[in-house]
Design a protein around this nucleic acid. Structure first.
Lengths: 220, 220
DNA sequence: GGTTATCTGGACTCATAAGTCTAGTAATTG
DNA sequence: CAATTACTAGACTTATGAGTCCAGATAACC
């Protein structure tokens, strides 16, 4: 038995490892297929055999890289969250006007929040919530919490400009996310809305912008 | 094999049934224990043996009353929805003022929406969504859709009074529900908030009332 | 080449759970 | 009473899936 952790020991050159080295490409293949399968079919709905098969790898190899299903799932969640929360969310803002920028931000986040992967992720967390909310914490911190921070920064910018009048920035950012989800996210979660239309997204964005500006737009 | 349906045939006296009659109390016991277990542990997490045991009934009896697990679950969901959506939601309104009544309504619905049973129901639907969104439809029509109607009636009353200025009543009712859920419902769903405090409910209600009145309160 | 460790493929154990079957018992009608 | 249907208790079948084990192949190091 050797260490099972996927991470290498300290960056010093680990030349003196005797046998055949781990195939890191297989490691990635496993996490990737796990990530797709867990999102598609949930924790219970995904078998380790399926993961191995989809990764083009033997089952034993899966277990030699990851101690158990739970560990693999948490790594898969980490990957998925990173994969689908773009760091470039609030960059190349064109600084037109509050309303234009707000609409752009809302549009970006609406697509993120209402998209297939976001809904699948939420459902995965629900189905595996009893087994340990560790998954949920990983997700929450890297996903929604990160987004929350970006939204606060965005709002603060326009508060400083005098275009927004907000007491509690944190609460306002929460409201923005809540409004963008609307009832659509829930409907998708419970399987009553298979696909989301472009119009539906646009409508959510427009409603959100309208409401938000009405609430917090500074009356000049 | 006799009919498996739990409902009696047309109310005509069905005297001429030969053998031992179904024990309706057992039927109820089964649905009730199923309802509790499905909400507690989800569809996959609940076994037919558990249900039988908790109902104090043999497994065969369960199968003689309900064709399969799916059927039993849908009946259990119907029961749970009826059980937890009070028909007396908007009665004995005291007609004080818009704000007081709105607060009362929000308080009532917030407790409903954020309570253990509501969250458990949502999670049950998520976990069994792949298996057939029939469950979700049953729930949606008897639960949120019914509530939506009541909210619209409530809003319409105050529109007629001239105290609210709303174009799209339906959308406003949706907004109310969305605001009341806030992020709390989601947090509870994914297991990051085990219990909900009285303060949390109050805060959601107050925020919702404030926002809603700011948006739709008629400027006299 | 020898050693060590990984990878493969498949057989294997073990547990859980849906649904069936059976033999016996209880309740109701005729 | 006999016939009929419901209920019980438990054994049973079947399927699924997590995790293990093993024999042989492969890839690195010395």
């Amino acid at each position: 038995m050797t260490a099972i952790s996927a991470e290498n020991p300290p960056k010093s050159k680990q030349k003196s490892v005797r046998g055949r080295p781990r195939d890191t490409s297989k490691n990635k293949a496993i996490i990737h297929s796990a990530s797709r399968l867990f999102l598609e079919k949930g924790f219970d709905g995904t078998s380790m055999d399926d993961i191995a098969k989809r990764a083009g790898v033997s089952k034993q190899t899966v277990y030699s890289h990851f101690a158990c299903k739970e560990v693999l799932c948490s790594e898969a969640i980490s990957l998925a969250v990173k994969r689908y929360s773009p760091d470039t969310a609030l960059e190349n803002m064109e600084e037109h006007s509050l309303e234009a920028d707000l609409r752009a931000v809302c549009d970006k986040f609406a697509r993120l929040l209402l998209g297939d992967d976001s809904v699948a992720m939420a459902n995965l967390l629900v189905t595996s919530a009893p087994k340990g909310s560790e998954f949920a914490k990983i997700y929450w911190n890297a996903g929604p919490q990160a987004m929350h921070g970006k939204l606060k920064d965005f709002l603060q910018h326009w508060i400083d400009q005098g275009a927004l009048s907000i007491d509690d920035t944190s609460k306002a950012a929460d409201l923005l996310a809540t409004l963008l989800k609307g009832k659509v996210h829930f409907l998708r979660s419970i399987g009553l809305m298979d696909t989301i239309s472009e119009e539906q997204i646009q409508e959510n964005v427009e409603d959100t912008v309208t409401i938000f500006l009405k609430l917090y737009g500074a009356k000049i």
